[in-house]
C-alpha cells in the first residue's frame, strides 16, 4: 500500500497528481510540517529532515517530490506516465532534473518574495532577477514544446507533470506567459487535466 505524507497544499500536491493520474490506491497522511506534525520519531525514520512530502510503499521509503513522481511513474506508469521508448524515458529524467534545478529556484524565489514577504521587506530587485532567470527557462521550454506537443514526445508523461507542477507557480504569481505561446498552450492543457483539477479541489478543501 502506498502512503503519501504531506498536506495537499504543499509539494505533496505533485505526488497526488501522479497518484490520481494513475488511479492508484493510496493512503494520504496530510501532515503539516509548520504545525510540528512531522517531528515524530516514526516519520523522522522515513525523512530525518522532517520535511514533506515523503512516500512509503512496501519497503520503499523516499523523499524529494519530483523523485517520488519518477519512482511512481517507473513502477506503476508503464504505457501511461512512463513511456516505452528509451528517448522518451531519458527525456522524463532530464526534464525532472531540469524542473528542480533550473525552473524551481527562480519560480519559487519569486513566489516567496511576492506572497510570503511583507511588502515593506520585499526586494523588488530580487523579484526582477528571478523574472529574468525564469524567462531563460521559458525560452528553453518553448523550443522543446514547439517540436512536440508534450515534453517526452506525443504523449503526456511524468515529464509534463514534473515541469507543469512547478510552472504552476508562475500562473499563481501572474507571470505573463504570452511571449511563450507553446508553453502557455501546453501548461493550460496539463493543468486542466481531471486528475490535477481533483488535486486543486483537495487543496482548497484543506
Amino acid at each position: 500500500m502506498i502512503t503519501l505524507y504531506g498536506k495537499a497544499a504543499s509539494r505533496a500536491s505533485r505526488n497526488l497528481w501522479v497518484l490520481e493520474e494513475l488511479g492508484l490506491e493510496y493512503k494520504h497522511v496530510p501532515y503539516d510540517h509548520n504545525k510540528g506534525e512531522t517531528k515524530n520519531p516514526a516519520y523522522m525514520a522515513i525523512n530525518p529532515a522532517a520535511k514533506i512530502p515523503a512516500l512509503t510503499d512496501g519497503d520503499v521509503a523516499m523523499t524529494e517530490s519530483l523523485g517520488m513522481n519518477l519512482y511512481l511513474a517507473q513502477t506503476y506508469g508503464a504505457g501511461k506516465l512512463w513511456p516505452a521508448d528509451a528517448l522518451g524515458q531519458a527525456k522524463c529524467i532530464q526534464w525532472t532534473l531540469w524542473s528542480a534545478t533550473e525552473l524551481e529556484p527562480p519560480a519559487v524565489g519569486r513566489l516567496m518574495q511576492l506572497f510570503m514577504t511583507p511588502e515593506d521587506k520585499r526586494d523588488m530587485n530580487q523579484v526582477q532577477v528571478f523574472a529574468e532567470r525564469t524567462k531563460r527557462t521559458l525560452d528553453t521550454l518553448n523550443i522543446a514544446l514547439s517540436k512536440s506537443p508534450f515534453l517526452a514526445g506525443n504523449a503526456f508523461t511524468v515529464a509534463d507533470i514534473n515541469v507543469a507542477a512547478v510552472a504552476e507557480y508562475l500562473v499563481r504569481t501572474k507571470f505573463d506567459l504570452s511571449p511563450w505561446p507553446a508553453v502557455q498552450k501546453w501548461l493550460t492543457a496539463c493543468l486542466e487535466r481531471p486528475a490535477n483539477q481533483k488535486v486543486m479541489q483537495m487543496k482548497v478543501a484543506a
Binding site: 519497503d59 523516499m62 523523499t63 524529494e64 517520488m68 517507473q74 528542480a100
Partner: peptide, 13 residues
Amino acid sequence: AKDQARCLQWSMW
C-alpha cells in the same frame, strides 16, 4: 525497488 528509489531520491536531492 527500495534501493532504486533511493538512487532517484539522492540524485534529486
